[in-house]
Design a protein around this nucleic acid. Structure first.
Lengths: 225, 225
DNA sequence: TTCACACAGATTATATACAATCTTATAAAA
DNA sequence: TTTTATAAGATTGTATATAATCTGTGTGAA
């Protein structure tokens, strides 16, 4: 088992982070020659990274012109969360109809793992279990395209999500919301589950006043999903 | 004004088409050396095209392994249209709330252009106007992220959409549906507009019988969503 | 001045060369 | 026979070289 990634993937994360934190400013041009020197790679993998970032929307690639930073504005970030909330709401709605008992079991387990991680104060574990829970809901929607697009959006939001967000007991609240969503699913109330999920994601969105305050330059971090 | 595109874009459309029509089979490996000879380009723009296709989901790029065709199954195609229908429905729902008078005017014009093109039998014009109409609805949603994602999905579905679907008066029907949607928007009935749009896209999905024929695997009743 | 043109420098796009990795075939050992 | 090892060939990943395009500046004509 090797641990060596393609260079472009590593470069990609680097640049992604620098855009999210504001090290690279919006509209700034990313110079191939300079960056390839800085990262100690040739222009080939760098251009590959640009293409990936273009797909994510963090960079705009203009033919014969180059790569330009596209750091989301506050408005855009809100729109991204709005979109994400709608996707997740749709996932949970379909999942409520189609959930198999095996999937249900998997969800319960993820939820209890969240609870345990929270009690033990293991944030990394919490995030891992949290991702498992949400990921299973995407999958249980039964629409693979929806699942993929939701995962993709999740990934796009990642750099703007805060890593350790224990402020103001948000984690406990988040956990409670998970439980409520699962309960609604158990009741078979798909509309309720969807609405709860929408609010769940929105609420996360609402806590980016931190981001807002920091937006101009400071590390951009938002809450967890 | 130059008309020269980047090579990768052209190659991309070529391959896209060949995957859609079944010239390249699902799971087939795309050989860089062979294809670069065939297209008379070097491996560099070819690999670029692979990355784009990977983003679209028509190709799976496996590190150190290569590019493999991922031709959507009938099931997957249905899921794509289902997803698209939901996106468009959401767009029109938001657009109904937020439509400006200028945007409304633009929609009416696009609709009448559709009508004219239909009467004159100019299919290309119809599609152009049709795209303008739908595009404006995306834009009028007021959520730029939603707009972009919907456009992206539209583009992904393009190779699977039939070009001239004048069979069985489908064009007339499509036009009528447009009118109904605009009418619902005028009434401010966002739920009705959304539901009409959802059906409109579903029906479009039903017209991929061409694809169906090429796919040679599918029960006909799966098409009747 | 203002516009048009052209030339030089910089930057991107593509081709090719080289390095790393994987695949397959063969053969030796259990 | 089955398994493991290994080496050759094929293929992908990265670096570099060449070609095409863009940008900006300066000159000359209207």
């Amino acid at each position: 088992m090797t641990n060596k990634y393609k260079a472009s993937a590593l470069i990609c994360s680097e640049i992604e982070q620098k855009i999210a934190t504001g090290a690279y400013k919006d509209g700034e041009k990313l110079n191939e020659a300079a960056l390839s020197e800085q990262f100690n790679v040739s222009r080939t993998p760098l251009r590959e990274a640009f293409q990936i970032l273009d797909g994510i929307g963090l960079v705009e690639l203009i033919p014969n012109r180059g790569a330009f930073v596209r750091r989301p504005s506050m408005t855009r970030l809100v729109e991204m969360f709005e979109f994400m909330a709608e996707l997740e709401a749709w996932c949970v709605k379909l999942a409520t109809r189609r959930l198999t008992s095996a999937q249900q079991l998997y969800l319960k387990r993820a939820a209890s793992d969240c609870a345990r991680a929270l009690k033990e104060g293991k944030n990394d574990d919490y995030y891992e279990a949290n991702n498992r829970l949400h990921g299973m809901i995407y999958q249980a929607s039964g629409n693979a395209v929806l699942e993929e697009e939701t995962l993709r959006m999740h990934r796009r939001l990642r750099p703007f999500r805060r890593k350790q967000l224990d402020v103001s007991g948000r984690l406990e609240q988040s956990m409670q919301e998970h439980d409520d969503i699962l309960a609604a699913m158990d009741e078979g109330d798909e509309e309720k589950a969807a609405e709860l999920m929408r609010k769940h994601i929105y609420t996360l969105g609402n806590t980016y006043d931190q981001y807002l305050a920091a937006l101009e330059e400071v590390p951009a971090d938002i809450m967890n999903l």
